[in-house]
């Protein structure tokens, strides 16, 4: 008896009316994977450097994210405290621990409680950094890693994201290129999250409601100035 893998691949090949691809043809396909090319990138995804930030903000606000601009990472703690106060939330956040987050002077707000590690159900708010922002649709791209657990992006009710403004790219393709530059071709972090606005549902009578299972609020802190890579 042949195993399922063999018989399924055989069924696929029979349907295609051929045997396994010869090495030369497979090599051509392999090259398509090893050297990925962009397909059509819409004009919206190719803004000039001057337009890039404005378009990102416009698109992000269109999907009910809120955006605040900060002059540098040193302004982040104060912005977080103010955000939580206005939202009437406790002054405590679960924070990521990557280079950008470590460069934030959290001690400047002694009344703000911070904790690292994976999120737990009782965490009301989290602060993480984004690997990129995509102007095309106001999308944040976040990577998982030992210092950026994925649960921070989903369990808390409010998600605050630090996005260095130099990390805003035009299109998804630009972001993939940056990621390949960082990790090498064909390699991915365990999780890449594209996040476009706060969680929502329209499953009850097509009424749009924010905050289905993920965060009800998404605050983007767009930071100018020096940021660690």
């Amino acid at each position: 008896m042949t195993d399922a893998r063999t018989s399924m691949l055989a069924a696929v090949r029979a349907a295609l009316g051929r045997e396994r691809l010869p090495d030369t043809e497979a090599a051509v396909l392999q090259r398509r994977l090893d050297e990925p090319r962009s397909n059509i990138v819409p004009a919206r995804g190719q803004p000039s450097p001057e337009e890039r930030i404005d378009r990102f903000i416009f698109e992000a606000e269109r999907v009910q994210a809120t955006v605040v601009r900060l002059a540098g990472l040193e302004e982040v703690p104060d912005a977080v405290v103010r955000y939580l106060r206005v939202a009437n939330m406790p002054s405590a956040v679960r924070i990521g621990d990557d280079a950008v987050m470590q460069a934030v002077p959290w001690h400047s707000e002694p009344l703000l409680e911070t904790a690292t590690g994976p999120a737990v159900d009782s965490d009301a708010a989290s602060v993480t950094s984004a690997f990129a922002g995509v102007a095309e649709t106001g999308t944040l791209i976040l990577l998982s890693g030992p210092k950026s657990p994925t649960t921070l992006n989903f369990l808390p009710e409010a998600h605050l994201v630090v996005l260095p403004s130099e990390r805003i790219v035009g299109s998804y393709e630009d972001a993939w290129q940056r990621l390949r530059g960082k990790l090498g071709n064909g390699r991915m972090p365990r999780v890449v999250n594209w996040i476009t606005g706060p969680s929502r549902t329209a499953d009850i009578e097509q009424t749009l409601l924010l905050g289905a299972h993920g965060p009800k609020r998404l605050q983007i802190m767009l930071v100018d100035g020096e940021c660690p890579q």
Binding site: V63, S144, T150, T151, M188
Partner: peptide
């Protein structure tokens, strides 16, 4: 334009990961 969450998942939790 895009759904809220588009997630690319590649394999199980990695050795240093804290969740997943």
């Amino acid at each position: 334009d895009l759904s809220v969450y588009t997630t690319f998942t590649t394999g199980p939790r990695r050795p240093e990961d804290l969740d997943g």
